[in-house]
Write a protein that binds this DNA or RNA. Structure first.
Lengths: 335, 335
DNA sequence: ATGTACGATTGAATCGTTTCAAAGCGTAGT
DNA sequence: ACTACGCTTTGAAACGATTCAATCGTACAT
């Protein structure tokens, strides 16, 4: 049924070795022969079997990327960046969505390891990096994405979430807000707790300022809406005068609930700032302020570090890259 | 370096065949032996080599999905649906992003064919299905996604775009609008031209109504903004009183340009309706009406049809599934 | 005519898993 | 004591591309 190099070789009256050379080192083959083999390939409709190539090569030509949530445009953008950079290197990116679920994360790790991926980019779910250490020890380079690795452990690309949280809260405080609600969760996720930590520090610097945590089960639009319903239902006296959402999806949900359901005005009754600065933040019902992260760059850099580690022998090559987040002001936090 | 079944076999003092059976048909192996092999695997840190499995099996255990634009939440949702359904079957989805670019589409087809994917889901760029026919003839089932296939050619899952376009325009007309601008492109893309066709039909039914086409280079937020700038710059006399955007990304861009730049009121000065009903439509600066498509269901169904075709011998199994789109009314088209 | 050198071509060996016909082993029945 | 049968285990063959040491041919110098 399937056409193999052997068939092509027979049709072109050459050996299998020559067919392989035509495919991989055409310069080593006489032009006339190349021609002949190529037309045999065309005629028979031969298609290389990647599994066989990989088996021989020992490694696949793709890299695995495990993200927390594909529906979050931030991660889509990271993936795009990674894909772009990988494509330039002739590599493919396999995208896995853990959905912040340990079991699925583990399943993807198994899958990618069985595939003998060239390397692994991952936004790990928890602090337990033992599994990743093992993977690396067995020869698969690993780069942490959107999470700073402890020095001497892994290469990583991250954005300083504590700084970002600080920026966000500071901005709200500068606008005169004093009762800040932090909406986000689960708090076990590092990105979330770091942002909260940053916000706490900013609040601590201002006398009379307070921060309250409104935990969510996940950082999604739906959960944001739920949190918004709760806030909106409070009496004005109990209500915070500003909300810092742990990401933009939450912010969108909050916005929806506060305005459409609660008839509250943003920013007059409640200021709002999000995190990630996804494209949709600028077009929201009230365009909202956000903390921008260089998502695509994160992806690209991650691939760079991966390739670097894959080529460099020793693991002295480990590098922790940290980008600085940036405040983007919009209507939701105007005076 | 790498641990193979052979090493495991040696460590457990059994043959390679037995190791393989422990992995794939544990019921065929004596419990005590299973135990012994398993602990050898654990001890040596053996990880199956997927390339070798695939080579032997002749097919990979993943299906390829090629979409027009990963940044469009509509496609993200289709992908999620497909992934979900595939996972239930023990299959992986490889996501390829053609970016509406023929060359990249072709590259992904080549890649997936070399990978011997279980099947291919694709939102094809153009009408030229010859490449896909060839693929199928060589044994890879193909299902068209979000595009109705000519009968007797392929299985397909689609949403009736002509009906959707009709719904959208009809809604605007019922709201009293008479000068409608259709913003979208490239018109060579079937989804776009079908939606336009539907809109034209609705307009033709109403005396005194007219439709104008404002072509865009791609259906993105940026292009929407560009189109919006152009519309907003016109004199009120030349301006349409309603815009039908070929998708929600365009609608978001339009909204931004019309309101923030043009100081136009939506819907008073110009009504707006989009297409896809992505999550963000409800939270837009003016929540906008849209035509909803069952994106995740599209993905799930596509996988179903694929598996059906893959199992059923003949190709009599071809089925064209067409879903009906649905109007979702929001503020952007209120009276 | 002989030898040398070099580019082109060959084909067996290899990668790691799965399959399957055959062999092995133990027990029960005669 | 021998056969039969069922359950386990065995190990060689196969999947298809790539590699590399060995061979082949040819052109050129001597």
């Amino acid at each position: 049924m399937t056409v193999s190099v052997r068939d092509v070789a027979a049709a072109a009256s050459v050996s299998v070795g020559t067919v392989s050379n035509v495919l991989n080192h055409p310069d080593k083959v006489a032009p006339a022969t190349v021609e002949r083999v190529l037309s045999a390939i065309e005629e028979l409709g031969f298609v290389r079997n990647d599994a066989a190539r990989q088996l021989r090569a020992g490694r696949s030509r793709s890299i695995g990327l495990v993200v927390l949530d594909v529906r979050n445009p931030f991660f889509t953008e990271v993936a795009r960046g990674a894909e772009e950079r990988a494509a330039a290197e002739g590599l493919t990116v396999l995208l896995g969505n853990s959905g912040a679920n340990s079991a699925r994360e583990a399943a993807y790790l198994d899958l990618f390891e069985e595939q003998r991926v060239h390397g692994l980019l991952i936004t790990p779910l928890n602090e337990e990096l033992a599994r990743l250490e093992r993977l690396r020890r067995r020869g698969t380079p690993v780069v942490l994405v959107d999470r700073q690795a402890p020095p001497r452990s892994f290469s990583s690309v991250a954005v300083d979430d504590v700084a970002g949280g600080f920026l966000a809260a500071q901005h709200l405080l500068e606008r005169g807000r004093r009762r800040i609600a932090f909406v986000g969760g689960p708090l076990g996720i590092r990105q979330v707790s770091d942002r909260l930590e940053g916000a706490r520090r900013a609040v601590a610097e201002v006398a009379g300022a307070a921060i309250e945590v409104v935990p969510t089960e996940s950082p999604t639009v739906l959960e944001g809406r739920t949190a918004g319903e709760a806030l909106q239902a409070r009496t004005p006296a109990e209500r915070p005068d500003a909300v810092f959402a742990a990401n933009d999806l939450l912010a969108m949900g909050l916005l929806q609930a506060l305005m459409l359901r609660g008839k509250l005005r943003v920013p007059e009754d409640m200021a709002l700032i999000g995190y990630d600065d996804i494209d949709f933040a600028a077009t929201a019902i009230v365009p909202f302020s956000s903390i921008r992260q260089p998502a695509a760059l994160l992806g690209q850099t991650a691939v760079d570090l991966l390739l670097q580690e894959a080529s460099g022998r020793g693991m002295k090559e480990l590098r922790q890259v940290v980008f600085r987040p940036e405040l983007v002001e919009r209507a939701s936090t105007q005076a």
